[in-house]
């Protein structure tokens, strides 16, 4: 599924990477606020849903080759994070949905879990 379709489903605003979102294809996702769990359990190139907004989310994404991060509960990334995402070529989105609701909508739309 294109990242732009994902944005539509969860009514998300694309903060960074509008120009690459259309061509970014994502089939699996992971929702977590614990970055070590993301590192331990993610195997594929997932979309990461998180309510955590600190630079470590970007570092985790960099390590795990994650290209799409969706901030839930309306969380706003800092300028530093936005800059890091630009440099790393990562798409950042923000939805007002809660983690549960955002994951539920995407699962229903056919996005799979990473296991």
């Amino acid at each position: 599924m294109r990242a732009t379709e994902i944005a539509q489903i969860i009514n998300a605003e694309i903060i960074v990477g509008k120009e690459i979102a259309y061509d970014l294809d994502v089939e699996t996702a992971c929702g977590s606020d614990l970055m070590s769990d993301v590192i331990a359990f993610v195997k594929e190139r997932v979309a990461l849903l998180s309510g955590l907004t600190n630079p470590q989310v970007l570092r985790t994404a960099d390590l795990m080759d994650i290209r799409l991060i969706i901030f839930v509960r309306g969380k706003k990334p800092s300028e530093e994070m936005i800059q890091m995402a630009r440099e790393q070529g990562i798409v950042l989105m923000r939805t007002h949905d809660t983690m549960f609701v955002a994951c539920g909508k995407l699962y229903q739309a056919g996005i799979k879990g990473d296991s």
Binding site: S36, I39, A40
Partner: peptide, 24 residues
């Protein structure tokens, strides 16, 4: 052991302290 952590509540709020560091 997976899940064992001595990280403070403050550190956990930042997304760490899952107790997966050494196992990872």
């Amino acid at each position: 052991q997976e899940g064992y952590s001595t990280a403070s509540e403050e550190i956990r709020d930042m997304g760490f302290g899952a107790g997966m560091g050494l196992p990872n």
